[in-house]
C-alpha cells in the first residue's frame, strides 16, 4: 500500500471487494471480531474522493469572525472554561483554535487581504511524518486528523506544521460534544468537519456560517470529482497554495492573494 498516492487503485479495490464477500461467507474463527456496520456509512472514507476547500480572500470580510465562531460551536471548543486564575494572555495563547483569521499586508502596495486559516489538509503532511505513534494520520479521503487514543501529546506535529494549524489541550475539559471528544494532553486541529461529512453533509460549519452572513468566501468539496463546484472553480480561477514552495499539495487553496 502506498502512502504517497491517494489515487484509487482499482485492482486493490476489486480485490478487497471479493475478500469482503469471502469473509462474510466464511465461518468466523474464534478470536476474530466481526461487527456489523449499517448501510449508510458502511464504506467509510473512500480514496475516490479528496476533500478540499477553496477560499476567496476577496470575499472574506475584515472584522468578520463568523467561520471562527461556527467552528468553535460545531466542535465544542466554546464549551471550554478558562482555568481558574489564568491570565487573559495565557488563556488566549493556549485555548484551542482550529481556524483563525489572518490578515496579510502587501509591503509594497499596502494592499490588505483577509483569510481564514486552518489545517490545510496536506497531501504530504509533515505532521504525519513526524508523529512517533501514528496518531497523526491522513484518512483515505484526504482529511488529516489526530487519533486521540494514540496521541501521547509530544507536540512534534505542532512543530512540524508550517501553518500553525494545531492546538494542544493544556487543561482538563469538563464538557464535550458527543461528536468532538477532547481532553488534556492531546493535540487537535481542523478535521474538515469529518463527522458532518461522514453523516452525508456536503458543507462544513464554517462554509455554512460564511454563506449565512452573505460572504460566500468558502467553498468545500471533492477535488477529485471533475463535476464538483470546487473542481470547476479551481479549473477556471487562478488559485494558490500557501507556502506552495514546500510542495505539500494542500487541500485548502486560496484565490486573490
Amino acid at each position: 500500500m502506498s502512502c504517497n498516492s491517494d489515487q484509487p487503485d482499482m485492482n486493490r479495490r476489486g480485490f478487497l471487494g471479493k475478500t469482503v464477500v469471502a469473509a462474510t461467507a466464511a465461518v468466523v474463527a474464534p478470536g476474530i471480531m466481526l461487527t456489523v456496520a449499517k448501510a449508510s456509512s458502511e464504506e467509510g472514507a473512500s480514496s475516490a474522493v479528496r476533500w478540499g476547500m477553496l477560499i476567496d480572500t476577496n470575499k472574506c470580510a475584515d472584522g468578520c469572525s463568523a467561520c471562527v465562531d461556527a467552528c468553535n460551536k460545531e466542535n465544542g471548543i466554546d464549551l471550554m472554561q478558562r482555568p481558574e486564575g489564568q491570565a487573559d494572555e495565557m488563556w488566549n495563547a493556549q485555548r484551542p483554535q482550529w481556524v483563525r483569521k489572518v490578515k496579510l499586508r502587501d509591503k509594497q502596495t499596502g494592499e490588505v487581504s483577509n483569510l481564514p486559516m486552518m489545517c490545510q489538509h496536506c497531501e504530504h503532511p509533515p505532521c504525519v511524518d513526524v508523529c512517533p505513534t501514528g496518531a497523526s494520520f491522513k484518512r483515505a479521503d484526504g482529511i488529516v486528523m489526530v487519533d486521540r487514543h494514540t496521541c501521547i501529546g509530544c507536540r512534534y506535529c505542532m512543530m512540524a506544521c508550517p501553518y500553525k494549524a494545531r492546538s494542544f489541550i493544556h487543561q482538563d475539559v469538563a464538557e464535550q460534544l458527543t461528536g468532538a471528544p477532547r481532553g488534556k494532553g492531546c493535540v487537535e486541529s481542523c478535521n474538515l468537519c469529518a463527522g458532518r461529512i461522514d453523516a452525508g453533509n456536503s458543507t462544513t460549519a464554517c462554509q455554512d456560517a460564511c454563506n449565512r452572513d452573505g460572504h460566500q468566501a468558502i467553498l468545500f468539496g471533492d477535488l477529485k470529482n471533475p463535476d464538483s463546484e470546487i473542481a470547476k472553480a479551481l479549473k477556471t480561477e487562478s488559485s494558490h497554495q500557501i507556502r506552495a514552495d514546500l510542495e505539500l499539495n494542500t487541500g485548502v487553496r486560496y484565490t486573490n492573494i
Binding site: 461487527t35 458502511e42 467509510g44 494520520f137 484518512r139
Partner: peptide, 21 residues
C-alpha cells in the same frame, strides 16, 4: 472493551460511523 476498541478504530481511522458498538 474489545468491541469498543475495535469499533473506535473503524470510526476514527476509516470514517465508518454506524458501527454496532
Amino acid at each position: 472493551m474489545d468491541y469498543l476498541k475495535h469499533d473506535r478504530d473503524l470510526t476514527v481511522r476509516k470514517g465508518i460511523r454506524e458501527t454496532q458498538y
